[in-house]
Structure formats: C-alpha cells, structure tokens
Design a binder for these strands. Structure first.
Lengths: 138, 138
DNA sequence: CCATTAAGTAACTTTTATTGTTACATTAAA
DNA sequence: TTTAATGTAACAATAAAAGTTACTTAATGG
C-alpha cells in the first residue's frame, strides 16, 4: 500500500530549520529530501497556513520557523497536512441497506477509531523540541 | 490515500457464507461486492491457505466455510490478507546517517507501533460469530 | 531601476500498487 | 462429454502521490 511520507519528511525539515541560522530555501530543502522544490513548497504551505512556519520571497528569502519547536506537537503537524484517515484499511459502503455489511463495518470502525484516538493522543503529547533534543544527545 | 477494502469485503462474504445453505460461487460473491470473480478468488485463496474456507471446482462447486465463525477472529482474517502495515503514514529512510531523521522516525514508529498493537489486540478479541449475531438482532 | 533570487501556483507528467479484465487450463458433476 | 466451476498468468485500467515545467510575483542588492 502506498505510503504518505510527508509527515516524516516535514518533521525532518522543521528540526533542521530550528538548527539553521538563516532561512532555508525550498531548493535546499528539496536537495536534503532528494525531491523537488515545488513539492517542498506545497507541503510547507500547509504548515504556513497554520502559522508554524513563515516564508519570504526574493533575495535572502526562504523558510523559517514561526513558532518555537516546544510549542508545536506531532499532532499539530499531522493535522496541518490534512485529516485523511491514517489507516490503509477501508470500509465498503456499497450496500448501505445490508445489515451484515453494517455489522462488519461497525466492528472495524470501532477498533480503528480506538487505535486512531490513541495515536492522536500520543502525537499530541510529543513536542518537536523533544525530537531535537533526542538527536542532540548523539 | 488509497484504501484496501479487502478486509471489510471478505468479512462481509464470510458472514454471508455462514448464513448460506450451499457453496457460493465466485461469480455470485463478485456480484454481491460489485466486483470481478477473479478478484474474489484472489482474496479468498489467501483465506483458504490458512484453512478458513474451502473451494471446490466443477458443478455445484464454489466456496464454503472450513471452520465455524466462532473459531475465526478479525485478526485471523486481517493477517491472512497479508501483513503490510495498516498505516498510510510512511517513514523515510533516505539518509540513514542523519540523526535528525532517526529521531523523527523513531518517535513516529513508537506511536504507530503502539496504535497498531492496540488494533491487533482488539481484532484478536472479536470472533466472526459476534458479527453474525449482531446483524441477526435487527 | 534593473538584475537576480526566491516563493506562488497552475497545469501537466510520471510512478506505482491495487484493482479489474481477458484468456485459457483444469477439474468435477450431471 | 458437455457444462459449470475454480486456478492462474498476463495484461489493462485506475487513482493518488510525487515529480516537473513554465510562468508570475515579490523583495533585495548593486
């Protein structure tokens, strides 16, 4: 199943940004992630909308943090990237009048909701400065 | 993100099979799921390998349960379909020597593992006869 | 004030795994 | 021996993310 690696990638960028002295360009980040500047802008734009980063155009322009890492959680970034479900398991709703399908989907949904809620809770407990400190230890 | 709806679909089939008097053909199941008989065979073959269903060729052939629903859990079926990760969130491992990437991925992996373990635990607790009873109530 | 450097963005292409399809072989029952 | 079913290989269609191109806008420095 295809994976969405935007969360992992953008977190990587944010921790680097924190360590950087000046704004980083999309071009630089793209090289770091072995991708394309436009892809970087697309993803970073979602974080800017929520006020986690800021961008400036022109000479000496680029991206920088708009908030300290200690004030951003994994959940914040996860949500900024869009709220599509985190599971590869999909429910079918082809026959909305089939009671068996209802029972099956209800059972699966219960479990998935519980697991997603746990994940969201944990993500909300982890701020990005912790990640930064973790790597500094080495 | 693309969803894998095989679990939901195949559970639907299994509960129907339990209620059925005789073997059901791939063709019939395909119509039920609005899909193709070959797709049905592909998925059902994975369950047969684990001994949850059996198939017979020729006249009056088709698929039937090889075990009572009470002896099959959601987890059994989930695992029979393959053990690919249940999350749409992917980790990048482009720079295996970047300590920041390591810290980011470790944090994400911890949380995802915890959530997946919870899901697996719950799936293991639910047998398919429960789904069958649930729908019979209505 | 103009050249350069950067982001913003729309439109399009590529990629890749699932899903769907076709075609044919095999098997079993009537 | 015909018919109805699965088994399976090979190929096509689909869809979403990721990548790319091309152009616009904006800000800085000389």
């Amino acid at each position: 199943m295809r994976k969405d690696s935007r969360l992992s990638r953008v977190l990587h960028i944010l921790v680097h940004l924190d360590a950087a002295e000046q704004a980083a360009t999309s071009e630089q980040m793209a090289q770091m992630l072995q991708t394309n500047p436009v892809v970087v802008r697309r993803t970073m734009a979602l974080l800017r909308e929520r006020g986690y980063v800021q961008s400036s155009k022109g000479h000496k322009g680029g991206w920088s943090l708009a908030k300290p890492l200690a004030q951003i959680t994994l959940l914040d970034i996860h949500q900024a990237l869009g709220d599509s479900s985190v599971f590869t398991i999909g429910l079918t709703d082809e026959h909305t009048n089939c009671p068996i399908e209802h029972a099956v989907n209800a059972a699966l949904k219960d479990v998935m909701d519980e697991a997603e809620n746990l994940m969201i809770k944990r993500f909300g407990e982890i701020t990005l400065d912790v990640l930064s400190q973790q790597f500094s230890k080495h």
